[in-house]
Design a binder for these strands. Structure first.
Lengths: 256, 256
DNA sequence: CAGAAATTGCCACAAAATGCCACATCGGCG
DNA sequence: CGCCGATGTGGCATTTTGTGGCAATTTCTG
């Protein structure tokens, strides 16, 4: 049982920062099995490098001073924006696409604002509202019970609504990617719903920003065998990359 | 043990503020699991930064321009708020209610923010987002094609989603009231959908602010015979009042 | 409209969590 | 062996949060 290297600890901290926008000393100390003092020293190091912002009790994303818009959207915003732009480039006029809920797919929605002649199906309230307010995209909202965390609809009604559509492209966000390269999700229902979304369309793209790598969430995600592409903002760690290659999932890197 | 970071608490407050325009100390304290005093201190901090405006019992958003729908909401905002409060007083714990789309029903949603143990069915994106961001109300979104003007779902999917619910109260906004006292709507589809909503519930309330009186919109609105009440902010002109009385529609006047 | 009741604001102090520093401990390495 | 860097420990200062009392405000009621 060797203690984790300082580097990988700080790496973990940065990922957590990207993912959540803020981290607490106590929680990190518990998770990483080291003393709070060590975490504090790590945070101080990162702060000296300008990669984190110290606040009482923990650290926050460097940019966290300003944005009043959705907090999670700002987490790793540049990476997600790049993924969004890349994903948008696969959408052609006349297509019908599904956008899953989540901050990465919201970034894709931003990238679609200028488009027309496309139809977007989504269960995400912010995506639907964004597109109907500031674009000419035709929006179909998938109804259902609203999960306040995701600000999106889930449940039987959402699933059955999916049945009625012919869909060209499907864009799915991923909760996490285990170190073994397995895709994971937060809840059983969400996973099932994403699976149905994938089956509803011709081509499936998965959107994964680098803060998701090696993050474990509880539920294994069911996928379809054919994945048109896995859009990332940074190359994944080797082990994950190999797992993707073994399943013949093309990894598409979006450049900022 | 692990206290959530102060900064994420304030982030949450800003989000709620953004969605609802105003937040209350008590509700935030309860939702975030901290004492009211702490919330007060947070609000004071935000106010010092110019990011919130303190008011008795909570804080309000600093005057920020908000797009389309807010503009319409601003038309006769006080009257609509009064109607919303009055309408909310009919909603009891445990009830399932339908909220139609529109600025007046949005005002009702604002009035429901502090409530819990109620379920709201709505086809309106802003209402769903407001309630899921700043209240403990359970929200079911009725899916369908989004009409950018109303920022709400309409269509076959919306209608069929209605089938599955048992509803206590239905709150419907009205497009206009002709000088003859006839209720009118903007489109055939919207009218039909509102009719279905009415039939789905036990009691139907119509929300009419005085700017709707003697305004003609193109489509005659189908109603159900029994209307539990017609909530207004000012008494209607005599001819309209007579027409309402003839149909035995109780007129309920909301006071500011 | 007045007075009561409930809610909220405000202040001071106590309790808890965190920050910070000095020093001890551990393990590798020349 | 002794040096060095990294980490843990403990004590104390600082910050944050909770609590209770009381004044001010709002709301209810007759």
């Amino acid at each position: 049982m060797n203690r984790p290297l300082a580097i990988s600890r700080q790496d973990h901290i940065l990922n957590a920062l990207d993912a959540a926008g803020a981290v607490s000393v106590s929680l990190l100390a518990e998770r990483l099995g080291v003393s709070r003092e060590t975490i504090r020293r790590d945070l101080k190091t990162l702060a000296d490098q300008g990669r984190a912002n110290l606040v009482h009790g923990g650290a926050a994303r460097t940019a966290t001073a300003e944005p009043s818009l959705a907090a999670r959207q700002a987490a790793n915003a540049p990476g997600k924006a790049a993924i969004g732009r890349k994903a948008a480039s696969f959408v052609e006029d006349g297509m019908v696409v599904i956008l899953d809920s989540g901050s990465t797919t919201l970034a894709l929605a931003y990238a679609l604002v200028e488009r027309k002649d496309i139809t977007v199906l989504t269960n995400s309230l912010p995506i639907a509202l964004l597109l109907c307010r500031s674009s000419d995209v035709k929006v179909m909202m998938l109804g259902g019970e609203i999960d306040p965390n995701d600000e999106a609809a889930f449940g039987i009604d959402t699933l059955s609504a999916l049945e009625h559509f012919r869909v060209d492209l499907v864009f799915i966000g991923v909760g996490g990617v285990s170190p073994e390269g397995e895709l994971t999700d937060y809840s059983r229902l969400a996973s099932e719903q994403r699976h149905r979304m994938m089956k509803a369309g011709q081509k499936v793209f998965l959107l994964v920003d680098h803060s998701k790598f090696e993050r474990r969430t509880p539920v294994k995600m069911a996928t379809v065998s054919r994945i048109a592409g896995l859009i990332v903002d940074k190359p994944p760690p080797r082990r994950i990359a190999q797992a993707f290659a073994a399943r013949r999932w093309p990894v598409i890197e979006a450049k900022a």
